[in-house]
C-alpha cells in the first residue's frame, strides 16, 4: 500500500510539473489526465476507493473531455505554440516559480515540524456505504447546495453559449 502511494505520488508530481511547463495544450492535457489518474491511485492507497473511482470517472473522464473539446474548438496549432514560447521567457516565469517554491518550502517545513504531534493511523478502508450515509445524513444540506451550484453552472454555461450565437447572428447582418 505504501509503495503504491509513493510511486503514485512521484508520478503525480512529475506529471503535474510537466502540465504547467508544456507549450502545446494537447500535450499538457495528456499529462493532466496522467496526473489525475496518479492522484486516484493515491486515494486508493489512502483507503478511499469511492473517491478514487470518482476521480477517474468525473475528473479524468468528464472534466478532461470538456478541456479536450475546448482545445479542439480553439484549434491551437503551430501558431499558438510559437506565441506561447514567446510568452514563456525565463524572466516571465522565474519570479512566480521562485515564489511558489518558497511557499512550498514553507508548507513542507510546517508540516514536518508539526508532524511529531500527530500519530500515524493505519489505513482503514472507508467504503461507499459509509460515505453515502454521511453525504445524505449530516451533510444533506451540503449535497443540496452543491446540486444548486451545478444547476447554476449549467445555466451560466448555457447563457454564455447562447449569447455567443446571438453575437454571430449580429455579425452576419
Amino acid at each position: 500500500m505504501q509503495g503504491l502511494f509513493y510511486v503514485s505520488a512521484a508520478v503525480a508530481v512529475l506529471a503535474t510539473a510537466l502540465v504547467v511547463t508544456r507549450r502545446n495544450a494537447a500535450h499538457a492535457l495528456l499529462y493532466l489526465v496522467l496526473s489525475l489518474a496518479a492522484v486516484a491511485g493515491m486515494f486508493y492507497a489512502l483507503g478511499a476507493p469511492l473517491a478514487a473511482a470518482l476521480e477517474v470517472i468525473v475528473y479524468a473522464g468528464a472534466i478532461m473531455v470538456l478541456f479536450v473539446f475546448a482545445v479542439m474548438v480553439l484549434a491551437l496549432g503551430r501558431e499558438g505554440e510559437r506565441q506561447e514560447s514567446q510568452w514563456l521567457r525565463p524572466r516571465m516565469w522565474l519570479g512566480p516559480a521562485a515564489l511558489a517554491a518558497v511557499l512550498l518550502g514553507e508548507l513542507i517545513y510546517v508540516l514536518a515540524s508539526g508532524a511529531a504531534a500527530v500519530a500515524g493511523g493505519t489505513p482503514v478502508v472507508v467504503g461507499p456505504q459509509e460515505v453515502g450515509a454521511a453525504l445524505f445524513g449530516p451533510y444533506a444540506l451540503g449535497a443540496e447546495l452543491s446540486s444548486m451550484l451545478l444547476l447554476a453552472g449549467m445555466v451560466a454555461a448555457y447563457h454564455l453559449a447562447r449569447r455567443k450565437q446571438m453575437d454571430e447572428k449580429e455579425g452576419e447582418r
Partner: peptide, 13 residues
C-alpha cells in the same frame, strides 16, 4: 484517512 472517517470523501465530492 487519518481519522478513519467518511467526512473527507464527502468533502471530496
Amino acid at each position: 484517512a487519518r481519522h478513519h472517517a467518511a467526512d473527507g470523501q464527502v468533502m471530496f465530492m
